[in-house]
């Protein structure tokens, strides 16, 4: 039981990063980004190629991915989302699905369907108070917590974060106050890119990298964001932790293959009972 909760917390921390990215893009750009799974896959392949093909040590490869991948999200934005900016959420979300096919299959075309692993030595799990703790889990938890603190500082303590929250709250008012929303949108994609890249490396350390990997996380990611209330980054973190723990505990009753099913149930329940998530605000539709 304690072991499951521990695993759940670590999984939750890893999922929290893309869930925040999802929430941020939803808050600023007002559409759910269905390409988030494929973006995760793409970032993981960048890190893998640097690590195994170019022979860069994993830490350096991860750092490089953190720098390189935001460039990819910016290209996606200028190529796909910017031309569609004012077309409403439905068009944007269908476009993001299209983007997800492109990204995923570029990986498949270049690297094939085989599952890949980072070049890291296998290590014996640590034992502490009857719990098995993998070295990867410690790294994942550390990196995720660091990233969460960073995001918190950026959003709540920096002028950029203030501008982002202003645009999320009321784009017209923000524009009237002289906030350049183009710059804010770029910053959002860069931040989302960094978060996705970080979690992709953590996911890749935890499991194998294959073109399908994004699909395994997309439902859980959306579940975290919906449970926390779409558009609320803090809610996404709580949602992700909750989904991680529930997902692990659910393996006691259902087959582990049904993790996405549990996440779907959570989405359905939250939408039925508390449609705006546990922490979301009720928004008045225009």
């Amino acid at each position: 039981m304690a072991q499951l909760i521990l695993n759940g917390v670590v999984t939750g921390l890893i999922v929290a990063l893309p869930a925040i990215a999802l929430s941020l893009t939803f808050a600023i750009l007002k559409f759910p980004n269905f390409a988030i799974g494929a973006m995760l896959t793409f970032a993981a392949y960048i890190a893998w190629a640097l690590n195994t093909l170019a022979g860069v040590p994993l830490v350096a490869a991860a750092a490089l991915t953190l720098v390189l991948f935001p460039a990819v999200t910016l290209i996606c934005d200028s190529g796909v989302f910017r031309p569609l900016r004012n077309r409403g959420p439905i068009t944007l979300m269908v476009a993001s699905m299209g983007l997800s096919f492109v990204l995923e299959n570029v990986c498949r075309l270049v690297f094939g369907n085989d599952a890949r692993n980072f070049d890291i030595p296998l290590s014996r799990p640590l034992r502490y108070a009857g719990l098995r703790i993998n070295y990867e889990q410690i790294v994942a938890a550390g990196v995720a917590v660091a990233a969460l603190i960073l995001v918190y500082l950026i959003l709540l303590r920096s002028p950029l974060g203030r501008a982002m929250r202003a645009v999320a709250d009321n784009p017209d008012l923000a524009a009237a106050r002289g906030i350049d929303d183009g710059r804010v949108i770029k910053a959002t994609w860069i931040l989302a890119g960094v978060l996705i890249a970080a979690s992709s490396v953590l996911v890749g350390m935890d499991r194998a990298i294959d073109p399908q990997m994004g699909w395994n996380y997309i439902i859980v990611c959306f579940a975290a964001a919906v449970v926390g209330g779409m558009g609320s980054p803090a809610g996404a973190v709580v949602g992700a932790l909750g989904m991680g723990i529930i997902g692990e505990l659910a393996t006691l009753v259902v087959d582990p293959n049904y993790r996405a099913g549990v996440a779907f149930l959570a989405i359905a329940l939250v939408l039925l009972i508390r449609p705006h998530g546990l922490f979301g605000r009720r928004e008045i539709k225009k």
């Binding site: 077309r87 299209g98 983007l99 096919f101 570029v106 498949r108």
Partner: peptide, 16 residues
């Protein structure tokens, strides 16, 4: 893979 890339890119291009 190429086929799916074409579908995805075509989808986006048509939308735009």
């Amino acid at each position: 893979a190429i086929r799916l890339i074409l579908i995805g890119a075509g989808l986006i291009a048509l939308l735009i």
